[in-house]
Computed example of a mutant assay.
Amino acid sequence: MYEALTANRVYRKAMLPHDALKIILDDEGRGLASSSVKAFMETISVYPLGMSVRLSNGDAAVVIKPSAYNDQFPIVRAIENERGEPIQPYELNLAESDDVNIVTCET
Rank of each mutant, 00 (worst) to 15 (best):
Y90M: 02
V100P: 01
K13M: 00
N101I: 11
L5W: 08
L94Q: 11
S67Q: 13
I75K: 13
L25M: 13
H18D: 05
L25Y: 04
T43D: 03
E91A: 08
A95R: 08
L16W: 13
L16V: 07
E106Y: 10
M41V: 00
I102S: 01
S52D: 15
A60M: 09
D98F: 00
A39G: 10
A14Q: 09
V46T: 14
L16G: 06
M51G: 06
P74H: 06
E42Q: 11
V10G: 13
R83G: 08
Y69G: 12
E91F: 05
E96N: 10
L92T: 02
P74K: 08
H18T: 01
V100I: 10
D19L: 04
E82K: 15
S52G: 10
Y11C: 08
C105R: 14
A20F: 14
L32H: 09
E91R: 03
A14N: 05
G29R: 07
T6L: 01
I102M: 02
G84D: 06
Y47T: 07
N57V: 06
A95I: 06
I44C: 02
I87H: 07
S56Y: 01
E106F: 06
S34H: 08
V100T: 06
V53E: 08
N70D: 15
K13F: 00
S97T: 01
E42M: 07
Y47P: 11
P48E: 09
E96F: 07
D98R: 05
L25E: 14
N8I: 07
D26I: 00
D71K: 05
P66T: 14
G29F: 07
N101F: 14
N57T: 03
R9W: 03
S36A: 15
M15D: 14
S97G: 02
A68C: 10
R83T: 09
S35L: 05
N93L: 02
R54A: 07
D26N: 01
F40G: 06
Q72H: 02
S36Q: 14
E85L: 15
R77C: 12
L25V: 09
S97I: 02
S67C: 10
S67F: 12
K13R: 04
Y2L: 10
I79G: 05
E106P: 03
L32M: 12
K13D: 01
A68T: 12
L55I: 03
R54N: 08
Y47S: 07
T104E: 05
T43E: 06
F40M: 07
R77M: 14
A20T: 09
D27I: 09
N57W: 05
F73L: 11
S34E: 12
V76T: 00
N81G: 09
T104K: 06
A20L: 09
T104V: 00
V100W: 02
P48A: 11
P66E: 15
K22Q: 07
D19H: 06
L32D: 12
E28R: 15
M1F: 13
M51R: 12
S56C: 02
D98Y: 00
R83M: 08
L16T: 11
G84K: 03
